[in-house]
Computed example of a mutant assay.
Amino acid sequence: MGSLDGRVAIITGAGRGIGREHALLFAREGASVVVNDLGGANDGSGADAGPAQQVVDEIVAAGGKAVANTDNIATWDGAEGLVKQAVSEFGRLDVLVNNAGILRDAFIAGMDESQWDAVIAVHLKGHAATLHHAAAYWKDQSKAGETVNASVINTASASGTFMPNAGQGNYGAAKAGIAALTLVAADELDRYGVRVNAIAPIARTRLTLATPGMGALFAAEVPEGEFDAFAPSNISPLVAYLAAADCKLTGKVYAVQGGAITELAGWHGVNTIESEGPWTTADLAERL
């Protein structure tokens, strides 16, 4: 018996890296998996059905259940097609793991519009689009009197939460938005039986290896037999737990890397000044 027996899960960006590890673990734990991956390059350009199909083939060869999907989740129609495929193939949808992402790093002064738009589209809109269509499906189920026990796991980042990274204004903004979206969705969807959480993972992937100033750290070789703290497989057990039917957690954001998991908290007050009347700039200059 696996912890995800009978669950049907969509995992976006599951052809490589962290998403691939999610898909393989979910299948081993008994879930039926829709492996979504457009198959593009790091910057989102191009498309290739191969990565998604290769993961499906690996799952099926091991006795699991999976189908490939190459819809573009950065579009409303693509996200809708993905959700519909899960339901048509496996009869239901229980879990949505939003993981797909790209990088188009640039310093703000030199960033062009396409670099901003592409990253926001894949990360933030890609999360919102799949979440919208999955939420609509679960809402309809709940309204029809069915018992819903669903889970969404979004993918934020250290870059958008606790470790801002120069050159990633687009990526950090998208990831911060995903963390906020997670909290709003958790509040909205609880009434329909849907839990929503997020992770901020740090692991060795195509994207982290391509991140300026970080690639060398992630590429460092680990002696055989020693624990590899940057292996993407370290991330997936937390995601599988958050996806399980008996998990009760919702509205949480967890940083996860190697053997460490940290619950994150958002913006909070650290110092307050007050006035009994209107502020003046002189008051603020003195007191801030």
Results as ranks from 00 to 15, higher is better:
A86W: 12
A219C: 06
G251V: 13
A282I: 02
A136P: 07
A198R: 00
G44Q: 06
A203G: 06
V33Y: 01
D43E: 14
A176Q: 02
N197W: 01
A62Q: 12
N234L: 00
I11N: 08
A282N: 11
L238F: 02
V87F: 06
F107T: 15
A174R: 02
G40Y: 05
G39S: 10
L103F: 06
P201K: 01
L93G: 07
A128I: 09
G259T: 12
H22A: 05
A176D: 02
I273T: 14
D117R: 15
G193Y: 04
P232M: 13
K248W: 15
V55E: 03
A100H: 07
K84E: 07
P212L: 05
S151R: 01
A79F: 05
G13R: 00
A229F: 05
K143I: 09
A118Y: 05
G6Q: 14
F227D: 10
G167M: 01
D105C: 02
D37P: 11
R104L: 08
G277R: 07
L181V: 03
E263H: 07
W116S: 13
S233A: 13
A41I: 01
Y137D: 13
A243M: 10
D283F: 13
S142C: 09
G177Q: 00
E21L: 03
A134R: 04
P237E: 01
A219G: 02
D57E: 15
A220E: 15
W279L: 08
S236Y: 02
I102C: 05
G193W: 06
F218L: 11
A219L: 01
K143T: 11
G258N: 09
G167W: 03
G126R: 10
P237S: 12
V148K: 15
T161F: 04
H127D: 04
G126S: 08
W267Y: 03
Y171T: 12
Y192K: 07
A86H: 15
G110C: 03
G46C: 12
W138Q: 10
A86R: 12
G215V: 10
L242M: 08
